[in-house]
Design a binder for these strands. Structure first.
Length: 540
RNA sequence: GGCCGAGUACCCAAGUGGACCAAGGGAACGGAUUGCAAAUCCGUCAUUCGCGGGUUCGAAUCCCGCCUCGGCCUCCA
């Protein structure tokens, strides 16, 4: 428990008090999805953890908790940090098999193209979708649009914000020039070199801190090289850990000519540098985009927060740090590194063959609400392996229903007196403790139990909690239309009228028959003093 | 093999040295309510924290060993 926000920082392996570089502001970069396929719930758990952190930073409750920071908190307006949060979309065609780190294996975009082409031929593309599988950018856009739709369903704020400011959701392919500029800078500063085949490598030995994030050392990496990287490739590197920044490849699916990139932008100076260093047509390595975009869009050499799945720690984020710090000369790239752990499904690693790579649309199709999906994916501490199950999803649905009922009841008592003035502070202390979400949920539920007659002020408190959790805010109508095979509202209402007649006549056999009939269609009816109401139940 | 993280009730999960003979949610069970249900409300539900040692007046919490699960060690959120 802490009066101030503490976060576990992967860089130091410790929990640290969060102090941003610029008072009241926070720059935050999240490694976003690759768009070669649908984004699954494991990806979303990681993005939602970042979203929760971002919402907490922005919450008035966050800054309000520390007594010694109250005057400063007022300077933030309503409290909370002004967060600039960027999440990238990786749409450059990288290799399925980077073991030859520089170009063996099938291109992932190529694989996606084939998959889509087959789906189109088989007529299994969703209705209304028109995608040209021969166009890699079109394929990327198709999956990007699907991602944005799912992210919106789950109220991922960075995606919602991108409606207003598209720069917050940058595509890698829109920033090739920034990547090349960074690569040139690294070459000029002797942190990168070009091999005879035109591959640009980062020189890891030029950066003594390489390995600090992951606890690796160059020695360990060298000894652990274990034959996974082809000997011919290794031969052209100065050190096995050196990684690719740019690959010359005139046959690649997505490729750019560095000189033309700068010439088209009117940057003759850099075009000349490309000639000088023999940068030729090809594509960027898979670490450089984040370094380039974070710097270009967040507009600072050092940022506050950087998040990504735990698998990104090495090598991806290690390499980002190396590139960025060598280019900027700063002590840090990001000051705090935030790494949510993997999501398991049914106590096992998610697996394609077991069919456990669920997407958000899969779950919506089963009748689960966006609010329940969001709650289920955020309710386990971000540094634990969460276990995703349908049972858990049902549990979450029940919790959402209780909150909704509380919220509805709170409308009826017009009082400005909160039933428990301390509850917000308890909630804040839990979240300040490295985002202790389970503790925070426990506090909300206990408070709801202890508050049988909530006032309007209590409703406002729940709204403030939900501003952080983003659960009730997930509008159910944000979901794609429910499967169309259910009965229409009019049909249901007609059956309910019949049942009301039967009950009036004490014909309970007929009344129960109608209730069973509706239940079979996943319609749950609730009898109350003012007649019956109904709701659609998740089909499990 | 190296480096990390985790193991708390039927399930999910908080708690990291005394206020814990362990929050909260779900399930289950008993009761109220209901024509019967659903929903709601009331109550019950871990003398115990993966296993074995140790430190301490005191341990789920610290130390040692073991077992199991997960991540990384150039695809992966």
């Amino acid at each position: 428990m802490s009066d101030q926000l503490t976060l576990h920082n992967t860089l130091t392996g410790r929990e640290e008090i969060f102090v941003p570089l610029r008072a009241g502001e926070c720059s935050f970069y999240t490694c976003g999805p690759t768009v070669y396929d649908f984004t699954h719930i494991g990806n979303f758990r990681s993005f939602l953890a970042a979203d929760l952190l971002r919402r907490w930073l922005e919450s008035p409750l966050c800054a309000r908790t520390a007594p010694d920071r109250k005057p400063e908190a007022h300077a933030f307006g309503q409290g909370g940090y002004r967060v600039r949060h960027v999440m990238n979309i990786t749409d450059v065609g990288h290799m399925t098999d980077d073991s030859a780190a520089d170009g063996a294996g099938e291109d992932k975009m190529e694989a996606a193209r084939k998959r889509l082409a087959e789906a189109k031929k088989a007529g299994t593309l969703p209705p209304g979708v028109d995608v040209d599988p021969s166009d890699p950018l079109g394929v990327a856009d198709y999956y990007r649009a699907a991602f944005v739709e799912d992210a919106r369903t789950l109220s991922l704020k960075v995606v919602l914000d991108a409606d207003r400011d598209p720069a917050l959701l940058p595509r890698a392919t829109d920033h090739i020039r920034h990547m090349l500029a960074l690569i040139l800078e690294l070459i000029e500063r002797h942190h990168a070199y070009v091999d005879p085949a035109g591959v640009v490598y980062f020189d890891t030995q030029s950066f003594p801190d390489y390995g600090r994030l992951s606890g690796n050392t160059l020695e360990k990496i060298r000894s652990g090289a274990g034959g996974r990287v082809a000997a011919t490739v290794q031969a052209s590197k100065k050190h096995p850990a050196d990684f690719m920044l740019w690959k010359h490849d005139p046959t690649h699916l997505m490729r750019w000519d560095p000189m033309r990139v700068f010439a088209d932008a009117g940057d003759a100076e850099r075009a000349e540098l490309c000639r000088k260093h023999a940068l030729k047509e090809g594509y960027p390595g898979w670490h450089i985009e984040c370094s380039a975009m974070a710097r270009a869009i967040l507009d600072h050499d050092e940022i506050d927060l950087h998040s990504g799945g735990e698998d990104n720690i090495f090598p991806h984020h290690e390499c980002e740090i190396a590139q960025s710090r060598c280019a900027t000369g700063k002590q840090h790239f990001a000051r705090y590194w935030f790494h949510p752990r993997f999501l398991m499904v049914n106590a096992e690693k998610m697996s394609k063959s077991k069919g456990t790579f669920f997407t958000v649309r899969d779950l919506l199709g089963k009748g689960f609400s966006p609010a329940a999906i969001r709650l289920e994916l955020i309710k386990t501490h971000y540094r634990s392996n969460a276990n995703f199950t349908e049972q858990g999803l049902k549990d979450s649905m029940r919790m959402v229903a209780r909150w909704r009922a509380f919220r509805a009841k709170a409308e009826s008592i017009a009082s400005n007196d909160a039933s428990d003035p301390q509850v917000e502070e308890r909630f804040a202390r839990a979240l300040n403790d490295d985002l202790n979400i389970s503790g925070a949920l426990g506090i909300i539920n206990a408070w709801i139990n202890d508050t049988p007659s909530p006032t309007r002020a209590d409703g406002a408190i729940l709204d403030r909690f939900d501003g952080v959790l983003g659960v009730l805010a997930c509008a159910d109508e944000g979901a794609p239309a429910q499967s169309s095979d259910g009965p229409s509202d009019a049909e249901i209402d007609a059956l309910l009228r019949q049942r009301a007649e039967a009950r009036k006549a004490k014909n309970f056999a007929e009344s129960d028959r109608i209730r069973d009939q509706l239940a079979a269609m996943n319609i749950v009816i609730t009898d109350g003093p003012n007649g019956a109401t109904w709701s659609r139940k998740a089909a499990l």
